[in-house]
């Protein structure tokens, strides 16, 4: 875990030096853990949530097993988060050692959580992607009823944005493309060329039995 400390301890023991030396290296290590220097890792997102205007969960994903391991703890955190954010439209808050960025519209609240040392602008880009993707999926009609009506597609979008804590895609238009909207639900005028092509491809395939997709 911390080689500097370990080797120092082993060396110190071998040479019979006082333990205080080891103590000093550990203190240094703690300063580093304090987020002075960020660990290069792709695991940036601790969680994402969409809550309604009573603070009830519509969808939530937590990616780090170490924080809020049980559903009970998660819901308690969400209640607390909602109480602190639903009146103040402040975009960012520090809570329970997490940085949470958020956005709301009509009766929906969107949250993205990361460690308190994480670059806030990276979290913000994920939040914007989540909001814009949902907005495009629901054709700008961002409210609870619409989310529940297209819950399957919204779930797929959340899955395309973040995979196990790693940002998979932060560009809303590409996320929406990847979730493969049910093309027959979009009026032809609003379809992109690509979607129409896909649809034609599918209807063509449907008439060609035997070749599996």
């Amino acid at each position: 875990m911390f080689p500097i400390g370990d080797t120092a301890i082993r060396k110190g023991r071998k040479e019979g030096r006082p333990v205080t030396r080891v103590h000093v290296t550990l203190i240094n290590f703690d300063i580093n853990m304090d987020g002075q220097l960020l660990e290069p890792t792709l695991y940036t997102v601790k969680g994402m949530a969409i809550l309604d205007n009573d603070g009830n969960r519509i969808l939530a994903k937590y990616y780090d097993k170490k924080i809020f391991p049980t559903s009970k703890e998660q819901k308690a955190f969400e209640k607390n988060l909602f109480n602190k954010t639903h009146r103040a439209n402040a975009e960012i808050i520090m809570l329970d050692g997490l940085t949470c960025v958020y956005r709301s519209n009509v009766d929906l609240f969107f949250y993205v959580m990361g460690s308190s040392h994480e670059n806030e602008l990276i979290l913000m880009s994920v939040l914007n992607c989540l909001y814009d993707s949902v907005s495009q999926i629901l054709r700008k009609n961002v409210e609870k009823r619409a989310v529940l009506d297209s819950l399957d597609i919204v779930m797929l979008a959340v899955d395309e944005i973040c995979d196990g804590g790693i940002i998979l895609d932060a560009d809303a238009s590409s996320v929406v493309q990847r979730v493969a909207l049910r093309t027959d639900d979009i009026p032809l005028g609003e379809q992109t060329v690509a979607q129409t092509c896909t649809q034609l491809q599918w209807s063509h395939r449907a008439r060609m039995p035997g070749d599996l997709p």
């Binding site: 399957d152 597609i153 779930m155 797929l156 979730v179 493969a180 599918w202 395939r205 449907a206 599996l212």
Partner: peptide, 9 residues
């Protein structure tokens, strides 16, 4: 089934 959304779900 070959429904895209269903497969993804």
């Amino acid at each position: 089934s070959r429904d895209v959304v269903l497969r993804r779900l």
